[in-house]
Amino acid sequence: MYRILRKTLKTGVLTEKAPTSSDAALEALGIEVKRLVDKRFNGSLAIREVDAGSCNACELEIHALNNPYYDVERFGIHFVASPRHADILLVTGPVSRHMETALLRTWEATPAPKWVIACGDCACDGGLFGRDNYATRGGVEAVLPVDLYIPGCPPAPVELMMGLLNLFNAAD
């Protein structure tokens, strides 16, 4: 236990020192996200992630949002297990036809008001798998109304946060 505490203390708080582009920019971004989550979602925003045929790269970067550098929970954003608890569906992948019904059911199970984000190039327009593909629908908009597109293959964590901010501003 002593060694765990020592390691934890030595590691210190990493959050907020962060990102690549500009530290100040992330901090400003975070503050803005927090302000809007507080205002529009009463301080708590729940996201249900749905993989609808992704190659798993988007999932890795969405996971990174919870690492100590980005730690999106501090802005009141958290990922939930059930669509019934969600405000937002964050959908990745070109929507494989084998996932189509599952995605629709997930959307139906999400209470209104709700928003849909197409996350990554595949979710935006089918990406490298193309639109003319017997196995996919070539993007989320073919199945659900999409409120926001976050392109990228995959979008980096900072781009995901900027995307969320854009959604709040649009919904404002």
């Binding site: 992704s54 992948g93 593909n133 196995a135």
Partner: peptide, 11 residues
């Protein structure tokens, strides 16, 4: 399995 089948071989 098969839910994320996206026709890679054909594509």
């Amino acid at each position: 399995l098969g839910y994320v089948h996206k026709g890679i071989e054909k594509a």
